[in-house]
Each structure stands twice: as C-alpha cells, then as structure tokens.
Design a protein around this nucleic acid. Sequence first.
DNA 1: GGCGATGAAATTGTATACGATCTTTTGCAT
DNA 2: ATGCAAAAGATCGTATACAATTTCATCGCC
Lengths: 236, 236
Amino acid sequence: MKSAAKAVQAEEPAETGAQQIRDAIREAIVERRLSPGTKLSESDVGNLFKVSRTLARAALQALSYEGLVSVEKNRGAFVAYPSPEEARQIFAARRLVEPGILREAAARITPADIRQLKQLLLEEGRLMSERGQTARRAEIKASGDFHLMLAEISGNAIMQRFMEELVARSSLVIALYGQSTASSCGHSEHGDIISAIESNDLDRACQLMLHHIAHIETDLDLRERKSLGLKEAFEL
Amino acid sequence: MKSAAKAVQAEEPAETGAQQIRDAIREAIVERRLSPGTKLSESDVGNLFKVSRTLARAALQALSYEGLVSVEKNRGAFVAYPSPEEARQIFAARRLVEPGILREAAARITPADIRQLKQLLLEEGRLMSERGQTARRAEIKASGDFHLMLAEISGNAIMQRFMEELVARSSLVIALYGQSTASSCGHSEHGDIISAIESNDLDRACQLMLHHIAHIETDLDLRERKSLGLKEAFEL
DNA sequence: GGCGATGAAATTGTATACGATCTTTTGCAT
DNA sequence: ATGCAAAAGATCGTATACAATTTCATCGCC
C-alpha cells in the first residue's frame, strides 16, 4: 500500500521507535478506540509502550503535526477535538482535492488496480453486514481505505500523504458529530464511483465523488455545542 | 498573516523553544541561505541556537514532517534534496489545489484583501528591480507570499497549511533545478490573476493560475543528474 | 458554609548522560 | 605503494534527571 510513496524517495523509517508508537496511537484514534478529548500523558504513553517519555513525546508531537492530537503548552496532549468550523474546513479540503485526485488516478489506473478496488469494496460490504465492535472498526477503516487507494493510484505521494491526514481527521469529525449509527460512509456510492471510472466517464465520477463527500457531511450535526454544562443542561 | 489560522482553533504555540528554531531554519531554507543537501547536525544546530540537542532534534524532526529536511537513520539531518520525480509531484499538487483555492478565495475576497494583494505585488516589483542577495531573497519570499495570501483569503486553515508546505518545498526545487537567473516567478502573471479576480472572471483566473504554475515548472531542468562525478565530469 | 490563598503532587519543558551505529583514520600486511 | 582491518572519533538513539509550570487539595478567613 505504501509502494508508491517509497518509489518517490528512499524514505527511510528513521526513528523506528517513535514511529511505531505514533502508528499505533493513530490507528487507535482512526478506529475510534480513543475518543476526542482523551488525555494522552507522556508518562502513560511511555509506560504503555515500555519506552521512555522521550519517545512517547516524539510520537505525540508527530501526531500533533497531523492534526490528530493537540498538545497544549504545559498541559499535555489530547486526542484532537475538532471544532465545527474545523470540521467544515476538513470536508471543504476534501471536496477541493478529491476530484483532482480522482482524475489523476483515472488517468493511470490499471485493470489490477480496479480489481483491488473492487476487492476492497467487497470486503467493506461484508463487514457492513456483520455486527460487533471489531467489524465496525474494520468497516470504518475499509471505507477510508477506498479514498486512500485512489490517492495511491494517482501516483502522487504528496497528495497521498495529505489525503491520509484528511481521512484520519474525518474519522475524528465523524466520531464527534456523526448522527447515523449506521455505516458512516455510503457504501454503494463507492461502487458507483468505480463504475463511472470503468466507463471512462470522468465528469460523472467527479460529480459522484462530490456528492459522496457532501453525503457524509450531511450526516453531521455541526451545531456549536457550547459545553452547556452550566445551567442549561438542567433547565429543560 | 496568520490571523485566519488562529481564528479557527486556539492553536497555541506549544513548545515555543523548538518552534522558534524550526521557524528560523525553515526561513533560511526557503530564502535559500541553506542549500539542499547541507548537513544539519543536531549538535551544531543546538550550539548555534544555544539550546540542547533535545530541542534541536525536535526542530529537525518537525521540519522533516514538512518535507524540508530529510533525516536518515543514524546519519543525521540534511536540507532536503528533492528528486526530479518529487519536484514533479510538488508542482502537480499545486496545479491540483491552487485553482480550487483561488475559487474559494475569490468567493470571500474583500476590497481590503485586494488592496493588500496589490501592495504585495508592488513590493515584489520593487524588489525585482533592486540588486543584491538581500533583495533577491526578499523577492523570493514575496513571490511565494502571493500564493500564500490567496490561501489565507480562502479561509481554510488546512489548505493554507498545505500550501505553506508546497510553497516552501517549491523553493527548494527551484533552488535545485531552476535555470533562469532572473526572477523565479513571473511577476506580471500575479498581476494578471488579480485583474481576473477583480473582473470576476473566475475561469480565466484559474486558467492564468495554471499557466503561471506551468510557467514556473518550465523554467526547471528536471533531467536526472546522476552525480556524474566519476569520469564524465572530466572527459569533455 | 462558601471563597480565596497556600502548598503539595503531578505533569510537562529542557538538559545531560550513556549506549549504539556510522565514519574516518591509522597501522599492518601484502 | 596499495588494500584491508581494527580502533578512534563523531553523531545519532534512547533513557534518565532536574527545573518550571500547572493542577488539585487543604487550610484559613470572611
């Protein structure tokens, strides 16, 4: 899955220790095992992974560059709690870049890619029918992977990395503001997009992609929640 | 200039120590006082800024996330030396996102913004006519700031940050592969884009932007240079 | 009883120390 | 003189230690 990125530059792991921790925490955030706002103290993270605070700190810093955790000076790191405005910007960014990525991907796509894409779709569908937390988490991941795979196919490692950030942050937004308990991502829409690509109807594919993103956004309740933990919470 | 970003989220400095060093080094790289490939040892950076290796290391790590320095395991950090392929991807990414940013910016632009944009243009022109390293560096910065200001006007902090990364990395690419000793960025083209925005001709503005980016790319010599420091260098 | 000040505990910010890896130099043998 | 090998030097990777800041609980005062 990372082959495209490696082809561009000999991107050596460099700091494998912190890298592993970073990836583990990121996965936990994206799969929503860690809720927004959860405190991630350096000591706790270090103890959990059996490393010193130095590495824990480096991992948390790295995650803050991706926007998945916010570190506040002298207060510590927390799983990011994106504001409604930030959520809007994340999806605006996706609407801005994903059609372009789709076009680039379509120009380079191979039959093998399409097969893999359909494979992913199948897996996604299978997980959707299952029940249980584990299946739900895997489904979340699979639905994101669809968008990520398109970015990979596009062959642009920079856009790919950007999309990884956007998809991860989207997961946080959905965890916070998503309403429908059902699947977060319209599954059938992914299939429609593939079909449009196959029939070489790029304009339609882009249109579908925009609708798809808008559809996800529609499911959010982005009203400002001002904590309301004072009196309002009790005066209904 | 960072007002838009701060308005979105209370993005506290968090780690002001490493932050300052990071910004200083980034500025040096973008203004081309540091050449691609230059070694940035943790000790040297630490001594230079009178801090411990810990902070120097954190700053270098941060810069590596932005793609401005590459850290190689057990070997150290170097000012990034983008490959031709990476250079292509950077400009492909800019072609992909800048028209979109331009459209968003045009939708929200105020007369005050336009005034500021023209002010920047004027400054850019003034610097272009001057000679000397200092003026050249300021010109490089100003020409990048034009694109950055559009991103700021667009009101999307995420796209703004991404553009900051792309512009910075573009500077590295131009330093490496740029041919014309003259101004790196077609100055008049910036003015044309503003004019198109003013006359509300968005399609033309986007077209001009694409041409502008392509124009910068044309000035690059992206042929693979395989060091050729062996015999070829002497057998002419 | 509520409210503000003071001090202890916890947590982060930064520096230093030590072990591991890579680079360079030196010395020996061919 | 050349080439390889071993050791010295430099640099990075990680852990630990101490200082600074924040948080929280306790105590006194109103």
